[in-house]
């Protein structure tokens, strides 16, 4: 999990955005990159295909500055959502401190959401990691779709443990920072 370097006085926390393909994980990171002050964030790295689908991961470091003598930084990662990239997803989960599940509100994507959630549990459990013990929030993205599934339905399908869930339209930034704030605070609480 997180590495605390008392010598350089640094705390780095790894937050992974998980979810089905084309659900908006990369869009979340792009919006964060666009909106936070350049002094606060590092370079946005995207290992993507020519058609801009995530191939391996996106990575964005966000620096909170020095607090009580510790430089505190969040490393935000996305995973590739497509089913056949599972080996890559497992690698990105290594050392994770917190997970954001980005669900797609389109009715036709409900099965893909459920499969991805099962895959997340499975990938963590395979390594003796329990999602119920990790900082974890869900984002219901694409709430602007005219036929978006109701939040109640999505919670019923994807959120049996009632973790914090946020409605979002990531392309416009709606809910992006609410989600990031919630997971960041959970991760920080888990360290103290």
């Amino acid at each position: 999990m997180s590495m605390i370097n008392y010598a350089s006085r640094e705390i780095n926390c790894k937050i992974v955005y998980y979810g089905p393909g084309l659900g908006g994980k990369t869009t979340n990171l792009e919006y964060v990159y666009e909106k936070v002050a350049p002094s606060t964030r590092g370079k946005l790295i995207s290992l993507a295909t020519e058609s801009e689908r995530t191939l391996f991961f996106d990575f964005l470091p966000v620096d909170l500055g020095t607090i009580r003598g510790f430089k505190t930084r969040f490393h935000l990662y996305t995973v590739p959502g497509q089913v056949y990239y599972n080996a890559s997803r497992k690698l990105i989960l290594k050392g994770v401190d917190g997970v954001v599940f980005v669900a797609d509100s389109h009715p036709a994507r409900l099965d893909a959401n459920s499969e991805s959630m099962d895959n997340l549990y499975h990938n963590l459990a395979e390594h003796d990691f329990d999602l119920r013990e990790l900082p974890f929030v869900i984002q219901f993205n694409k709430r602007d779709l005219p036929d978006a599934l109701s939040v109640a339905n999505m919670n019923a399908a994807l959120n049996p443990t009632a973790v914090p869930a946020f409605e979002a339209v990531a392309t416009r930034g709606v809910g992006v920072f609410d989600t990031l704030k919630a997971i960041s605070k959970q991760v920080i609480k888990s360290l103290s």
Binding site: M1, S2, M3, D128
Partner: peptide, 11 residues
């Protein structure tokens, strides 16, 4: 193994 346990580096 996934998720190495937390560890810390001292001075």
């Amino acid at each position: 193994m996934l998720g190495a346990l937390s560890w810390s580096f001292q001075e």
